[in-house]
Amino acid sequence: MSRVVLAMSGGVDSSVAAHLLLEQGHEVIGVFMRHGEEAVEACAIDGQDKTSSPLLPILNQRADHKQGCCSASDAEDGRRVAERLNIPFYALNLEAEFRGIIDYFVDEYSIGRTPNPCVMCNNRIKFGKLFDYADSVGAKFLATGHYAQLAHGDDGPALTRGVDAGKDQSYVLFGIKKKYLSRMLLPVGGYDKPKIREIAGTLGLNVAEKKDSQEICFVTSGKHDQFVRARRGTDSESTAGDIVTTSGKVVGQHPGIEGFTIGQRRGLGVAMGEPYFVVQIKPADKQVVIGPLSDLGCSELTASDTNWLVEPPQGSFRCLAQIRYNSSAWPAEAEVIEDGRLRVKFDEPQNGVAPGQAVVCYDDDRVLGGGWID
């Protein structure tokens, strides 16, 4: 049918996506994205110039199996799947592009915001740079293993939630450019996760029981605060300071505001006799403000840098608004205001509204658009 570039991470979702695309008659080209400064070392090909070309076939795994930022073992898993399915498999060196994602991650945490690098990666790289690559090889479509769906109606393609509500990833795709919807394929969005694993097992794919990644791809330790401090360097100003209650009482100290996010309960390092949560971060004062659950609720927010997958709404409109990837969407009244920003008023106060995260508006299961919480 059509030539398709498929982003292959070495996981079960993108691996089964390759099979599903082949079943539909497409010509599939698998692409693995090298990300981070360690990518060249971790995935280097013996005897080959590492800088001669941005497009390099992965032929073998690093002998010590050490996982760098790009995860050599993931690359090897992807290569094996591609071999079994008899499709070409390439690695793209996107170190410079991923460095921009990492810088954004570090900068946001350093000023008391909570970044979402997965959304930013989708916007800039997976549905940005990879479209450039697709164009360069004459591919009509770009596909990924995201759990979301595309519906086609009279008003054009629409991005909707995936069948598996527990795995739905439509939230992290809100920022893609509307013009790309007609060139996207999301093969696994119509299945639930157990079925995807079943298909992988039936095909004899080595990734059938591979665990889902739980951490940010470039923070391999899982300790994002340590990563941020290391990335900022020893010469940067410390963000350590006081932990205070909403009344201003100092109840402890913290090693850096980059270790906290709004709504956080665990790891506060203070005992208050009842559950306390991070309700505010004050970067200028280097303070982390904590309070009981009753202090956490937020009824209204504004968001900037909006992106719409429908015609931008005029006036106020009803929607379901989601403020975190792993949270539910709740009824709200939304309105596009000055400078294209978005105001959202929830019917009921929401906990964990964190500056730096995205708010995404839905009409039932359809993604309308969203922005970055101020």
Rank of each mutant, 00 (worst) to 15 (best):
262 I>N: 03
136 S>F: 02
11 G>W: 08
354 A>P: 02
353 V>T: 01
142 L>A: 05
266 R>H: 11
368 L>V: 01
227 F>W: 06
93 N>A: 12
1 M>T: 11
346 F>D: 12
6 L>M: 07
141 F>S: 01
260 F>L: 00
253 Q>T: 11
78 G>A: 02
246 T>M: 12
95 E>Q: 12
126 K>H: 12
238 S>Q: 04
45 I>H: 04
147 Y>V: 10
357 Q>V: 01
18 A>E: 07
229 R>Q: 14
262 I>M: 10
57 P>V: 00
249 K>A: 15
259 G>E: 03
30 G>T: 03
220 T>D: 08
261 T>R: 15
139 A>V: 12
363 D>R: 12
326 N>Q: 03
238 S>K: 01
293 L>E: 11
208 A>Q: 09
27 E>N: 01
138 G>A: 04
62 R>G: 07
328 S>N: 14
85 L>A: 03
62 R>N: 05
30 G>F: 03
362 Y>T: 02
9 S>K: 11
79 R>Y: 07
155 D>F: 08
224 H>N: 04
355 P>A: 11
268 L>R: 10
220 T>H: 08
352 G>V: 06
195 K>Y: 11
372 W>R: 14
275 P>C: 02
55 L>D: 12
313 P>A: 10
66 K>P: 01
122 N>R: 06
284 A>L: 11
67 Q>D: 15
79 R>M: 13
232 R>M: 12
280 Q>T: 12
327 S>A: 13
341 R>P: 02
139 A>H: 09
167 K>T: 10
239 T>N: 13
267 G>F: 09
123 N>H: 10
370 G>R: 13
148 A>I: 03
45 I>Y: 05
307 N>S: 15
269 G>N: 00
282 K>S: 15
307 N>Y: 04
65 H>E: 05
14 S>I: 07
352 G>A: 14
374 D>Q: 10
232 R>N: 03
330 W>T: 13
256 G>L: 01
342 L>I: 07
346 F>G: 04
222 G>S: 05
325 Y>P: 01
142 L>S: 04
178 K>R: 15
286 K>V: 07
119 V>S: 09
157 P>C: 12
249 K>C: 04
290 I>M: 03
144 T>R: 00
138 G>W: 07
346 F>Q: 13
157 P>E: 14
183 R>D: 05
55 L>F: 10
300 E>S: 08
331 P>N: 09
107 D>K: 14
364 D>N: 12
341 R>W: 04
28 V>D: 12
58 I>Q: 07
27 E>K: 02
33 M>N: 08
209 E>R: 07
101 I>W: 02
166 G>E: 15
21 L>H: 08
88 P>A: 14
144 T>E: 01
90 Y>T: 04
224 H>T: 13
247 S>N: 09
126 K>A: 09
240 A>V: 06
145 G>Y: 04
286 K>C: 10
82 A>F: 09
265 R>T: 09
307 N>R: 13
266 R>L: 05
253 Q>E: 12
188 V>H: 08
161 R>V: 06
240 A>C: 07
324 R>L: 11
342 L>P: 05
227 F>A: 04
352 G>T: 02
